[in-house]
Amino acid sequence: MMQDEDRSRATEGRWLLIKLATWCGALMLLGWAAWGAAWMVANLRVSLDMPPPSETSDTLPSRIAPPEPVAAPAPYMSDEGRAITNPSWLQAPEPAFPRAALRKGVETGAVSLECQADAQGRISACEIVDETPPGAGFGAETVRAAMKARIRPRLIDGEPAASQVAFTVRYRLE
């Protein structure tokens, strides 16, 4: 009877060691996976594809010619026709590479936005003009990052004024 109890305890002890070793191995694998994911995220590169700032003007005419000067700034997407296409960033957007794109194996993407900038340079009311590839999360991430960005506002008669801003963000996994 005593031998059966000893065998039972020994068998139970072996099973505990096997379970412990299995859990330790699983935790090591998870640690390696987490380190690999952290390394991958740390080595992601996102670039803003914007022309260099113009030395002569903060704005460039868009597709529509502007009308005669108006006292108040026109509402968003009006036919005023002037959008800042080469913004001078006080705080540039810093988007992260979307997890959805990583899950889908997408390594590059681009998003073109048109946003409203107030007289203090805060970005709001962003509209995605183009997103490549669609559905990989690039558009939502770019809008999220743009809402935290600030530009040097356009000056009208020496005073800061609200305006439209248009820019493209390109993503590349390195």
Rank of each mutant, 00 (worst) to 15 (best):
A119L: 06
R152N: 07
P67G: 12
L113H: 00
D157R: 02
P66I: 03
R82C: 05
R154T: 00
L16Y: 13
I84N: 10
D157H: 01
I84M: 15
A42G: 07
P53A: 11
K148S: 13
T108K: 07
A117L: 01
I84V: 15
R9V: 12
V169D: 00
A101Q: 00
A92M: 04
K104I: 05
C126N: 02
V41Y: 11
G25H: 02
A146N: 04
D49N: 06
E107F: 13
M147R: 13
M50D: 15
A74D: 09
A145D: 02
F138G: 03
P153F: 00
R63F: 14
F138I: 06
G36W: 14
G139I: 12
F97I: 08
L102I: 11
P73S: 05
V41C: 10
R172N: 04
L48D: 00
D49Y: 07
E107L: 09
P51E: 12
D157P: 00
C115K: 06
A33E: 15
A96G: 05
M147Q: 14
W35Y: 14
N86D: 08
G137R: 02
L16F: 13
R150I: 01
V46F: 05
S112P: 02
L102F: 13
L16D: 10
I123V: 15
M147I: 12
D58A: 11
S163E: 04
T168K: 02
T108L: 01
T11V: 14
I64H: 08
E68N: 06
V129H: 03
A125F: 07
R122H: 09
S88E: 11
Q164D: 14
A119D: 05
M77W: 12
A110M: 01
P67L: 02
S57E: 04
P134M: 06
W23V: 14
E127D: 10
S62P: 02
T142C: 04
R63N: 07
M50L: 15
K104N: 08
C24N: 08
D49H: 06
D58E: 04
I84R: 09
A10W: 04
D49S: 05
D6Q: 14
Q120R: 11
Q3R: 15
R144L: 10
P93N: 04
W32T: 11
D58P: 01
E68G: 02
V143T: 06
E68D: 13
A101L: 04
D79G: 08
A10L: 13
W39D: 15
P98Q: 03
V111Y: 00
S54E: 03
G25W: 04
G135Y: 07
L90S: 10
L60M: 12
P66F: 09
E174P: 09
T22P: 01
L27S: 12
P93T: 01
P69K: 02
T85S: 08
S88K: 11
G25R: 01
L27V: 07
K148F: 05
P73H: 01
A34C: 12
D4N: 09
P53V: 05
L155Q: 05
V106P: 00
S78Y: 03
A37M: 10
T59Y: 10
R99D: 13
W89F: 15
A140Y: 00
